[in-house]
Structures are given as C-alpha cells and as structure tokens.
Deep mutational scan, measured.
Amino acid sequence: KELVLALYDYQEKSPREVTMKKGDILTLLNSTNKDWWKVEVNGRQGAVPAAYVKKL
C-alpha cells in the first residue's frame, strides 16, 4: 500500500473528508482525482486536498 505525508494541518469540512495533522502518515487509497485524494487515517476514510500531502 502507498503512504503519503501530511504537509499541513487540514480540518474536515464535510463528512466525506478527514482531518489530518502536519506530519501524519496516511494510507493512500485513491489518487485519480488531481485535486482530492482518498486516504485512510486513524481508521477513517475520506478525502484530503492533494496539494496538502506528498507521496512517500
């Protein structure tokens, strides 16, 4: 499985998103959308802005 690093804090704004903190390591589930990537963090799945994460 592919991992990404959170470059910034992000507070979810809808139920389809997830909150992450700078430095979090997230499991990347889907990166086909260039703006929003689906990730899993702390057992929750949701979208985060692609510009806020970097593939490891």
Rank of each mutant, 00 (worst) to 15 (best):
L3T: 09
L3Q: 10
L3H: 09
L3I: 09
V4G: 14
L5W: 08
L5F: 10
A6M: 04
L7W: 04
L7E: 03
L7A: 03
L7V: 08
Y8E: 10
Y8H: 11
Y8L: 10
D9R: 03
D9E: 05
D9I: 03
Y10V: 02
Y10G: 00
Q11G: 07
E12C: 14
E12S: 15
K13R: 14
S14C: 10
P15L: 10
P15T: 10
R16G: 15
R16M: 14
R16S: 14
E17G: 14
V18K: 01
V18M: 12
V18P: 00
T19N: 06
K21N: 09
K21Q: 09
K21Y: 10
K22L: 06
K22V: 08
G23A: 03
G23S: 02
G23K: 02
D24G: 03
D24C: 08
I25P: 00
I25M: 06
L26G: 08
T27Y: 12
T27N: 08
T27A: 09
L28R: 00
L28N: 00
L28W: 01
L29T: 05
L29G: 00
N30Q: 10
S31N: 09
T32M: 12
K34A: 13
K34Q: 12
K34E: 11
D35G: 09
W36N: 02
W37F: 08
W37L: 06
K38I: 15
E40R: 07
E40W: 08
V41A: 12
V41M: 13
N42K: 09
N42E: 10
G43N: 07
G43Y: 04
G43T: 05
R44D: 03
R44S: 05
R44F: 06
R44V: 09
R44K: 12
R44G: 03
Q45N: 07
Q45S: 12
Q45H: 09
Q45F: 09
G46M: 11
A47W: 15
A47L: 15
A47C: 15
V48C: 05
V48T: 02
P49M: 04
P49K: 04
A50D: 02
A50S: 13
A50L: 02
A51Q: 11
Y52T: 07
V53R: 01
V53Q: 02
V53Y: 02
K54R: 13
K55Q: 09
K55A: 09
L56A: 04
